[in-house]
Design a protein around this nucleic acid. Sequence first.
DNA 1: ATGTCTCGACGTTCGAGA
Length: 267
Amino acid sequence: MPVRLATWNINSVRLRIGLVAKLVDEHAPDVLCLQETKCADDCFPLSAVRKLGYEHVAIHGQKGYHGVATFSRFAFAATASERWADKDDARHLATTFAEGPLAGVTVHNFYVPAGGDEPDPAINPKFAHKLQFLDELTHWSGRIAETGGRIMVGDLNVAPHESDVWSHKQLLRVVSHTPVETEGMNRMLEAGRWIDLVRRHTPHPEKLFSWWSYRAADWQASDRGRRLDHVWASADVAARMTEVRTVREARGWERPSDHVPVVVTIG
DNA sequence: ATGTCTCGACGTTCGAGA
């Protein structure tokens, strides 16, 4: 039986639990990874998630900011959250499956820091924090590069290639597409021998985005998007990938998140 | 390109973060 896995920056899970239900209704992910849940664990809408059919739920939240959650139809053998870049932010959740087609596989659900507006670590501590986070991800990737059974998903807040942004030239000095970030992401991919499942399905130079700013008057008409949301895997898992779908229409749903879900099927 | 959306706070509006 194939397994469907989705990742989505929901931008407040309490506000958009109805959109989560819509995604589940239309795309039926067996595993759903959310970022920017924006609530402490004791106010997470757990009963609604259970009603959607997810018996196994791992949450790692904090009040008001960040927060990640992983829902599953398959039981977990273990859940863990590591500390990154000298902060206790809720930005990482690792879940290892005990059963089902992904038994033994670990899904790492990440929300990488956005990095603020100014792409200079000397004057912008948020950008410095993002670069430290990416650097730690590269070292961590190198330490696990020889192991199989790995999936890494989430809002990594970097659009690595020219075809991942609406205008490479106009975004070269915009946080999310600066050379120090895109080169850092490429180092991370190489260090961990990660395979970018989304780009294996939709190769460059075809444009592909997963985020459009709320500030655009008409996101669809201007289509000034960026591909910030990623699904990576170790080679053994990547070999089983059969389908990838970026749910672009979700950006047009009522009161949408500014990110759309990315759904992969693993046979 | 200063535009929109979310949260939390001695809230009836603002600042911070994205």
